[in-house]
C-alpha cells in the first residue's frame, strides 16, 4: 500500500495548506469546547460546591448502588439472552416447518417493536404485575435474544457445508451435529458481533430510566433532584459523572470486541471472523446471501488501501 488513494501525497503547497486547515480545524474545535465551558461556567456550573457533592459518602454509596444495579440487570439479561438465543436459533433452523415459522414470527415481531415499549408493556402488566427489575431483564432478554439468535444463525450459515455433511457421514445425530460441530464454530466466528450486541444490551439497560428502575441514569436524576446546592440542582454535574461511567463501561466492552475481531483475522480456521459491529436491524431476517459473518474479509481485502485513517498519509513516494 502506497500513499492514500483518495488524495495525492502532499507537496510543499498542499502541506502548507493542510497545516493551515489543521490549525483552523483544531482552533475551531477547541474554540467550540471553550465556548461551551465558558457558557456553563457563566451559569456557575463549575462552582466547587456543586461538584463537592461527589465527596459525600452518601452520594458515593448511591453511585456504587446504581452501578451494581446496572451491572446486575446487564449480567442477567446478557446470560438469559444468550441462552434464549440458542433456543430460538435451533428452532429457527429446525427441520419441522411449524417450529420454524413460530421462531421466524417471534423474532421478526420483537425485533421491530421498540424495546422501550416491550419493557413498558411488561412493567404495566402484560403478564400480571412485574417489578421494574424483571420487566427490564425480561424485555432485554426477549429483544436481545432475538437479535443474537439471528447472529448465531448467520454464524452457522457461514460454517462450510462440508463440516455438517462430514459430521452426518460419521453417524452423528442432529443434536450432536449442532452441539459439537456447528455451534462451536459459529460462536467462535461470531464472537465479535455477539459482544457488540452485548454492548447494545448494556446501553439499553439505561431504558430502566423510563420504568423507574434505579440504574445509573435514573440515579443521576434522583441525586440531582434531591441534592440542591444553593438552590441549584446539579444536573450538569451528575449527568457528566454518571455518563462518564456508562461510556467507560461500554468502551471497555466494545474494545474487547474489536480486539477479538483483530485476533480472529490472524487465525487460519478457514472461517472468517465477523465484524465487531452491531448486527443489522432490517426486518424479514438477515439475508443469508449477504451474511454478517464472512463479509469482513471481503471488505478488508477489497478496500481502498489508505482509507483507513492511520499511517499512510505521512509516507510519500
Amino acid at each position: 500500500m502506497s500513499a492514500n488513494v483518495l488524495f495525492d501525497a502532499p507537496g510543499p503547497k498542499a502541506r502548507v495548506r493542510n497545516i493551515i486547515y489543521s490549525v483552523i480545524g483544531t482552533a475551531a474545535l477547541l474554540g467550540g469546547i471553550l465556548w461551551v465551558v465558558l457558557r456553563l461556567s457563566d451559569q456557575g456550573e463549575f462552582d466547587a460546591e456543586l461538584w463537592d457533592i461527589f465527596n459525600y459518602t452518601g452520594i458515593q454509596q448511591n453511585i456504587l448502588d446504581a452501578l451494581i444495579a446496572t451491572l446486575k440487570v446487564f449480567a442477567l439479561a446478557g446470560v438469559f439472552s444468550l441462552v434464549f438465543a440458542v433456543v430460538l436459533c435451533v428452532a429457527r433452523l429446525s427441520v419441522h416447518k411449524p417450529v420454524r415459522w413460530v421462531a421466524v414470527a417471534f423474532i421478526d415481531l420483537f425485533r421491530s417493536i421498540p424495546l422501550l415499549i416491550t419493557i413498558f408493556a411488561l412493567w404495566v402488566g402484560l403478564f400480571g404485575s412485574m417489578t421494574p427489575f424483571w420487566a427490564l431483564v425480561i424485555g432485554l432478554t426477549i429483544y436481545n435474544g432475538c437479535v443474537q439468535a439471528e447472529v448465531l444463525r448467520a454464524g452457522i450459515n457461514a460454517v462450510p457445508k462440508g463440516q455438517m455433511e462430514a459430521a452426518y457421514a460419521l453417524g452423528l445425530r442432529k443434536t450432536q451435529v449442532m452441539a459439537s460441530v456447528l455451534f462451536p464454530q459459529a460462536i467462535r466466528s461470531m464472537l465479535p458481533t455477539i459482544i457488540s450486541q452485548l454492548v447494545v444490551t448494556l446501553k439499553d439497560t439505561s431504558l430502566g430510566f423510563m420504568v423507574l428502575y434505579p440504574e445509573l441514569l435514573h440515579s443521576a436524576r434522583l441525586i440531582a433532584n434531591n441534592t440542591p446546592v444553593n438552590g441549584v440542582y446539579p444536573f450538569v454535574q451528575t449527568v457528566t459523572v454518571f455518563g462518564a461511567i456508562y461510556i467507560g463501561l461500554c468502551l471497555l466492552l466494545s474494545s474487547l470486541a474489536t480486539w477479538l475481531e483483530k485476533r480472529g483475522r490472524r487465525t487460519k480456521t478457514g472461517i472468517a471472523v465477523a465484524a465487531a459491529a452491531e448486527p443489522a436491524e432490517t426486518p424479514g431476517v438477515l439475508d443469508p446471501s449477504a451474511p454478517l459473518g464472512p463479509s469482513t474479509e471481503a471488505e478488508t481485502t477489497a478496500a481502498l488501501p489508505g482509507v483507513s485513517p492511520s499511517d499512510e498519509v505521512d509516507k510519500k513516494d
Binding site: 461551551v36 457558557r39 456553563l40 451559569q43 456550573e45 454492548v199 446501553k203 439499553d204 439497560t205 439505561s206 431504558l207 430510566f209 423510563m210 441514569l217 443521576a220 436524576r221 440531582a224 444536573f235 450538569v236 449527568v239 454518571f242 455518563g243 456508562y246 461510556i247 461500554c250 468502551l251 466494545s254
Partner: peptide, 18 residues
Amino acid sequence: NTPLTLLFLVAFFIVPKV
C-alpha cells in the same frame, strides 16, 4: 458507546444551559 438515554439527558438538561 453512549446510551441514547444519556444523550437525551444531555440534550434536555445541559444543552438548554449552554
